[in-house]
Design a protein around this nucleic acid. Structure first.
Lengths: 218, 218
DNA sequence: TGTAATGTTTACCAGTCGGTCAAATTATCC
DNA sequence: GGATAATTTGACCGACTGGTAAACATTACA
């Protein structure tokens, strides 16, 4: 009859898969620009090309759409950090991490902005994820870096702030894209800026973390 | 009689000054958290402790309030970059710039988030400022850095991306404060993280930009 | 092919949004 | 103290908000 709201059945219809995909795609468009509060279901419906009640047939509330989107994107988003390998060569690992994060900023800017908006506005919907899975993953990788530093493979440094600085510098090119373009001017607005950024950041972090041959006596 | 909307008289009343101050203070609170679209006049009115029509007596529209806030804050915000001195010692200048930006992130996080929200959402209200005054200032300082690099005082690097990286790493501690706290955990949530960040970033940038004693032959 | 489940839409609701208006209150200045 | 200008407020407006109800259309499947 009428009542069953999408997910009541055990198996998901082809239509359900397609439409939910379509909706989340549109939701990503809208939420990533305006944040949760600033976005409206009508906007998302229009981008998705369907009526508002139809959206609400697949996701009962605006919050459910947002939640669903966050869940789906978060895992992928942490992939580069997860790939950080304790057994690899430190310089290579750091270089790879920077490159991967930068590629994600280039290829998935909406995902980056979705999180940026959320965190910027106090992370009201993802506090648990930050304090749980995210913190655990960072703790684990920070320990790896700490060991590297202790073994003299890279310079002594605070591993947490190292991770923060890689996050911020790379995501900057997605989150603050408008500003970057404005400052670089029309000429540099192709994808070349990502190449330049990669070159600069790799140099900065590799040289910045290289162990000084001779420490000045203190 | 009724009509005169605040600024019609030549001289501004004491009350006008006070109330406008009070309103902008509240507006900063609200806009910096929710962005323009996500904020409501009612919220601002409540924080400011006055009625909505009273707010609209001083600022005709929500947009006018936002505009006014941006204008007032932008100048201050660029102060550290403006202080960047072409005649100073490169290492000292960079170190000072990092420290000043970090202090601003610590002392004026709302201002940082106000801009972050705005830029993140496509900078619909400050596009002109970005392409005009901001770009000009950055161009000027980038030239300074370029000359330093050419003279061998710091490593060869793209000055624009250097500036971007200093912006992003420092402002990260204001804009993504919730995330930083979540990852560092309760223990590190005092102001100590700014000290640690300063130490790390100064090391990273100074060592990362120091001219290599011997360049490997290429 | 029939029919039950699934999918879609129109019309609508109560609450909120930005903003106006006129009346009431307060400050200012002679 | 009174006239005049400045300030403040409650009541209100039309547009928009998230969300619902029920009728209608389509699909899957026996």
């Amino acid at each position: 009859m009428a009542i069953p709201r999408a997910a009541k059945t055990q198996r998901r219809t082809r239509i359900q898969e397609e439409k939910e995909e379509q909706i989340l795609e549109a939701a990503l468009d809208v939420f990533s620009v305006s944040g949760f509060r600033g976005s409206t279901i009508d906007q998302i419906a229009e981008v998705a090309g369907m009526s508002k009640p139809n959206l609400l047939y697949y996701f009962r509330t605006k919050e459910a759409m947002h939640r669903s989107l966050i869940d789906r994107v978060l895992f992928t988003w942490l992939e580069p950090l997860r790939a950080f390998d304790a057994l690899g060569n430190p310089e290579n690992e750091i270089r790879s991490y920077i490159r991967r994060k930068l590629e994600m900023a280039r290829d998935f800017p909406r995902e980056s902005r979705l999180f940026a908006n959320e965190v910027l506005q106090g992370a009201p919907h993802i506090e648990d994820e930050l304090k749980g899975p995210l913190k655990e993953l960072v703790d684990e990788k920070a320990e790896v870096i700490r060991v590297w530093a202790k073994a003299g493979k890279i310079a002594k440094c605070d591993p947490y702030h190292l991770i923060f600085s890689i996050w911020s510098t790379t995501q900057h090119y997605a989150d603050f894209d408008v500003q970057v373009r404005a400052v670089l001017g029309q000429g540099q607005s192709g994808e070349g800026r990502f190449e330049d950024a990669a070159r600069f950041l790799e140099q900065l972090f590799i040289d910045g973390l290289r162990v000084r041959a001779v420490e000045p006596a203190s």
